[in-house]
Design a protein around this nucleic acid. Structure first.
Lengths: 155, 155
DNA sequence: TGGATATCTATGGAATAACATGGAATTTAA
DNA sequence: TTAAATTCCATGTTATTCCATAGATATCCA
């Protein structure tokens, strides 16, 4: 199981503790670092979550920018400068830093939204409207997935 | 056997359990993950089902988008955020989440409709009218199958 | 061909395990 | 010593596994 799928809503206690959905933990079970990496989304009022190794991929993508370019610098600052590494406790929970809680408008509950290679954490109510917009956008724009590769005889 | 074929009607018990038709399970027997992936159809009041590897195809295609682009985000939210991974129990059953049951109007029974690479799950009665319409449409429009590959991209 | 037997499937219920969650206890740092 | 953070434990709920049965299908042998 290598992908983050589906949406789970878990409770945030007053210490900021929250269980990471078991299936997400299963997705990360092969990782060296047992925990997640979180940072603030640049596009939404939510948090972006990755496994440790996915962060290394991200770093690899950034390398395609000129190392001293303004863009590279901005991206690196926005992503790595903000990122927080949160280990699982013995019961599969993490502790959300209060700065991230307030940024993303979390209160009693947190919605973990699987997006394949990454996931997001939302205030459940705000996520509902976000989800509706996403559905709408996909339909209206007629977004479809590009065909596999180019060379490709598709299966 | 690599395709989902034919239609089977099975019972949904009050826990939401339902047997996946044996022939569908046979189609999936080669998959690493023994189970199915389900999400809501965009076009009908039914559920769309795939094997795990089909989801990985999807994920691979999404990788062609910029990781933080609006399009990638919309599609990932609409597809992966909605998807549910359901493992077979020892007897080849899955448990349908109540949200999907109500979305697709399932009650006592579920119709598993094979559509080749994917399948759908319908309320049997609604499927009948759907099937009638599909037949009618094929007849009226004289729809035919395009040849394999041919320059012609289909929809 | 017919009948009997065995196998596979779907289904229901019950036992078991896993998960999320709250609070307390222990450790670490200031 | 106080505050904060981490670990540990207890609990209710949910999900998963196990077992039993009945019907259907396929197989085998006479």
């Amino acid at each position: 199981m290598a992908l983050f799928l589906s949406t789970y809503i878990n409770k945030v206690d007053r210490k900021g503790r929250v269980s990471v959905p078991a299936s997400f933990r299963a997705t990360l079970s092969g990782e060296a670092f047992q925990g997640i990496v979180l940072f603030r989304s640049n596009n939404h009022v939510c948090l972006e979550g990755f496994g440790q190794s996915a962060m290394e991929d991200l770093s690899g993508r950034l390398d395609h920018f000129d190392l001293f370019s303004a863009e590279q610098d901005d991206m690196a600052t926005a992503i790595f400068g903000e990122a927080v590494q949160l280990p699982f406790d013995g019961d599969g929970r993490i502790i959300l830093p209060s700065a991230l809680i307030s940024f993303s408008g979390l209160e009693e509950q947190a919605a973990f939204v699987g997006l394949g290679r990454k996931f997001q954490i939302w205030n459940p109510e705000e996520f509902e409207s976000r989800r509706d917009k996403a559905r709408q956008s996909v339909q209206e724009k007629g977004l479809t997935l590009p065909r596999e590769k180019a060379g490709g005889a598709e299966s």
